[in-house]
Each structure stands twice: as structure tokens, then as C-alpha cells.
Design a protein around this nucleic acid. Structure first.
Lengths: 303, 303
DNA sequence: TCATTGGCATTAGTATTGCTAATGGCTTGA
DNA sequence: TCAAGCCATTAGCAATACTAATGCCAATGA
């Protein structure tokens, strides 16, 4: 059975106090109070069942045991400190490469990445925007967020966002805020996103609409669909998470209370490498932004 | 400024997991849960800002950084473990020498030391009883408890007990439990402790009694005074802490509600050596026993 | 002689950390 | 298809770390 070693903090307190022959000076060096040092030393002595220092008025002296322990502890601490310093990459030399769908680049990274960057001032960021999933192959990014079908996603990836498909349009185009029927929606010019099965055809089936569809515009991404919709080109059937910022700022409005469950979605993968911690930080930050945007958009549509 | 090192527990978790290539096996070896190991590794990776392991299904592999860190950490841990083992004296080879006044030996250690010994089963105890303070000189005991005057006590010693002097006698001798006046007390044979200024003379002065004193018996210690008082030889003026056990068991009763503040007392000194921790443990135990006895005796006298 | 100073010891209280239990996710093998 | 094995994560609680405050003591200087 492995006997637990004392905490490193106790060893450090001991080594530092022994070097200074002073608890007070050791406290200053280690950014603790003299009380903390005193307690650490005492705990170490209790743990070993022997005194390491002789307490004198205005100072301390090492006992024989303390003298024997000191070089060993100093050596071990030096090894750990050196190893730690070797391992730590200076933050200002680190570059995080993020390969992301243009939709998310446009509607989340462009307007918001500066906030992440502020919190990670010494972290370099390299953003690569891509449209099609196969463009990501061999890209060697630390973080990848690609738009893909469930079965095609990378092993170890996780889906992000609420997985909703919504009908949105510029308020100028539709000139009303009441819920629209599928029949009315179908009368407008429609914007279709290519490369996904979440299409107007699927929308018709889900809504039980059997009439014609006036698809006048095909775009390559949800981000583009949002762009065109904002300019009044037509009604877009698009990803809620991509549309959320525009719903929040009023550039777009939802035309149906009911949303459609998305088949395809955004999948995030983190490379297991020396940047994994930064990649996870970015991933968490982005997903928080998305969630926040979706919640805010939701609040608007029900307020 | 010294950057704090990660806790040793994190390093140990890392080293052990790296050696086993398994968090689960590392947990078994270190007597933790797999969850604890996982969290330690994760914390270490966050601390260093890089991954140390590549997680695979059913196992882990070291990253380049992990491979670099492992020998350094393993070395440091081995140094600390070896140093710790060298320093720890096997408990069953330790002998605590206690040099103590016969009064305390007789009335506290003889009846109660077995309880301390039970809690410290592997600690040898050597009790040396002494009467006169000068007998302690050069005794090289780990703990000394000598009866002394305040000014003569060893530097660094601390006084123990409540510092009260009381009049006690066997209930058979005085045949009453009512408070006795000084005049009545003085009619009885009196037992005097030699070598202390807390004498019947001082008692007379404190009580404002100007008559004669019937001192028929002089003894060399408070413990002996208690002994003689128990056998009905006379009324003893003695230390409350020494008399407390006899007051508790009813062998003696107090004759005055008011006690006299002691001038002399029992002074405890702990040698600063490799037994300091055990000496302190003993010291605390004994003082707790004394306090407990005095409190119990007090409760009886006011109940 | 006495007040001051400096340094260690101790305690109480609070914040932080360490750990377990429970559960989820994922891949592999039967 | 399902069980098994292993890592990841979360919630909750116990244990620890630390500070602030204070006590004690001896040396020093006025």
C-alpha cells in the first residue's frame, strides 16, 4: 500500500524556511502568511513524528533530521520546478487554429471573437473559414466546426447548438408579425440552402403542405441564407443558431411559432494536442455564446 | 515571484497513470477513485496548458509533453518518498522519557497512563519519578514536570493545572461536610508540605487567623500529603490538582469553599528533539486529564 | 526597569480543494 | 444487440489551506 506523501506545499514551506532560517521570510517568498508557514511546518513534523526545526526566540535552527531532509527536498522541488517550466509554453507563443464553417465565422466569430481574444490576450488565433465539409480534410486545425450530416461527423466530435430549423424573413418583406400559414409562406420568394436535407421539400412534408414552392435563390450556406434574407431577397429556411443574432437585432423575424428539428448540424472536434486546453476554452466560449444567443432570440419570440 | 507548483497529488496521479497507462489502475494503486485521478490529470493539463495524455477508448497514451515530463516527475517523487521513509522513525522503536514529580506520577500516571499508552501502542514510555526540583538537572528527559517556584522554572516551561491550594481531609476524620472555620481547622492535626511557600503559615495570613497551628506531620510532596490525609492522619494543605482524584472518589473532602492561590506549581518542559511530537502529545493528554479531574472535583464541591 | 520590537504559536472562521458517488458517453467484443 | 470496460463530468460533502487576529516570549534600547 502506498503511503501518501505530504503535500508539496509543506515541503516547499520547509525548504524555504530552512533556506532563510525564518518562517516570516519564507512566508514573504511564497506569498503566504507566517501563520500558514508555521502550520505547514508543524504538520510536516507531525507527519514525520520528529522536529525539523528548533524554535528559538527570533529565529529557528534546523535539527539533525531537518538537516538530513533539506537537500533531498530542495533537489526534488528543483526538479519539479524545472520540469514545470520546461513544459509550460509561453502563452504569447501559442497559436490556436480554428477551422470553422463560414456561417459561424460570419455570424459569431466576426462580431464576437474579440471578446474571447480579450480574455486570452496572449493567445494567437488563426481562423480558417470553409463551406463544404470535405474542405476540412487534412487541415490540422486545433478546433474544427463543420456543417455535416450526423453519420458523417468525425469520431469524437460533438454537435453544437439547439438543432432547430426556422423560417425567417426581413420584416420589410413580409410586412406583418403574425404567424404565417405554410400556404402564405409558399407565395413568397424562397431561399434554399444547398447541401443539406433540411430543405423546403422536407419543410413541406413536415408541415403537410402539398402545393408549389417558389425557390428563387439557392445558397451554399446557412450564413449566406441569413445574409440574403436580411436584404429582403426572400424567406429563408435556415439554422436557428445562425439566425439567432439577426432575430435578436430585429433584422429578421420568425414566421412560424413551430420549428423543425434539424437533421444536419454543426459538429465540433478538438484535436488532442498541446493546444487542447486552449481549444477547450474556445469551444466552451463559443458554445456559451451560441446558447446565449438562442436563449435571447427565444425570449424575443415569446415576449 | 515564485510560481506555485501544482499539488504533489496531481504529479503522483500523473506518474502513476503514466506508468500503468490507465486511470483506473492508477486509482487502485493510490487508493483513490478513477474520478479523482481523472480530475487530477485534467487539472495538471490545465495548469501546464497542454495535454499530457491522449485519451483512447479503453486506455490512454502519453503525448510528447507527457513523455518528457514523466521521468522528471518520477524522479522527484522517488526522492521525496525515499527522504520521507528515511526520516520516519518506526514508532515501535521510539522511547519517550518522562521525568515527573512523584505526586503526579502517583496520582495521575500510575492510575491513568495505561490509557495514553493504549492510544500510542507502539511508543515506549519510561517514567522517572523525582521529588526535589534539583533532581531533574541533567536528566535528558523528553518531558519534565517538576514542582518549582515561578522564578526558578526552566526557560520555555509552562505551568500546568489551576494553581489552587485547598484544605482537605478524610471524611472519617472530620465527621462533617459543613464548611469549617479556620479556628476549627486549626484544632486538628495538620499535615505540612515541605519545600514550598504555600504553607500553613501563609494560609493563616490569607485567612486572617492569628492562633496556633497543630502541625504534626511534615511530608516532602503534595502527593504524600494526599496519601496521609486519605489515611486520616490529619488535614492537608495541598495542591488542588493533586487532590482532585481523591476528591472525586470521596476519599477526601474539602473543608473550605474558598481556595488559596498557589505560589509554587508544576512546570512542564518539552525537550526540542526527535521526540517532540510524541512529547507534545503526552503533554496535551496529561493536561487534559488534569483539567478534567479538576472540573469533576469542582462539580462535586458545588453540586 | 520597563516599553518596544520581532518572530513563532495558536485559534477561529471562511474559502477552496479533494474526493466519492453516480451517471453519461463511447468503443469493442461476444 | 447488448454487456463490459474505461475515461469524463457533475453535485455534494468532508477535509484542508489560508488569513486575520492575538498571545507569548526573549532580546534590545531608552
Amino acid at each position: 500500500m502506498v503511503q501518501p506523501l505530504p503535500p508539496l506545499a509543506w515541503f516547499r514551506a520547509f525548504e524555504c524556511a530552512a533556506r532563510h532560517l525564518s518562517f516570516t521570510l519564507a512566508a514573504q517568498e511564497l506569498n503566504l502568511t507566517q501563520s500558514a508557514i508555521s502550520q505547514h511546518i508543524r504538520s510536516l513534523e507531525h507527519r514525520f513524528g520528529c522536529a525539523l526545526f528548533i524554535r528559538k526566540h527570533r529565529g529557528i535552527a534546523l535539527t539533525d533530521q531537518g538537516r538530513r531532509l533539506l537537500p533531498e527536498v530542495a533537489n526534488a522541488i528543483n526538479i519539479l520546478r524545472s520540469a514545470s517550466e520546461t513544459l509550460e509554453t509561453p502563452a504569447d507563443k501559442r497559436l490556436l487554429t480554428i477551422s470553422v464553417s463560414t456561417s459561424l465565422a460570419q455570424w459569431y466569430l466576426a462580431p464576437k471573437l474579440k471578446y474571447f481574444a480579450e480574455d486570452h490576450a496572449n493567445l494567437g488565433l488563426r481562423i480558417i473559414s470553409k463551406v463544404w465539409p470535405d474542405e476540412f480534410a487534412g487541415s490540422k486545425a486545433d478546433v474544427e466546426i463543420r456543417f455535416d450530416a450526423p453519420g458523417s461527423a468525425e469520431p469524437g466530435s460533438s454537435r453544437i447548438g439547439s438543432n432547430k430549423i426556422v423560417c425567417v424573413a426581413s420584416p420589410d418583406l413580409v410586412e406583418q408579425t403574425r404567424e404565417m400559414s405554410p400556404e402564405t409562406i409558399a407565395q413568397f420568394p424562397l431561399i434554399q440552402v444547398l447541401g443539406t436535407s433540411d430543405s423546403w421539400t422536407r419543410w413541406s412534408a413536415v408541415r403537410g403542405y402539398g402545393g408549389g414552392l417558389n425557390i428563387t435563390c439557392n445558397v451554399e450556406s446557412h450564413g449566406a441564407a441569413v445574409d440574403f434574407a436580411r436584404s429582403g431577397t426572400g424567406i429563408a429556411l435556415t439554422s436557428y443558431l445562425v439566425a439567432a443574432p439577426s432575430l435578436i437585432d430585429g433584422s429578421l423575424i420568425r414566421l412560424e411559432q413551430q420549428d423543425m428539428q434539424a437533421h444536419d448540424g454543426y459538429y465540433l472536434t478538438i484535436a488532442q494536442n498541446e493546444n487542447v486546453v486552449q481549444a477547450e476554452a474556445f469551444s466552451k466560449w463559443l458554445q456559451a455564446e451560441i446558447r446565449q444567443a438562442e436563449i435571447a432570440a427565444e425570449a424575443l419570440s415569446t415576449g
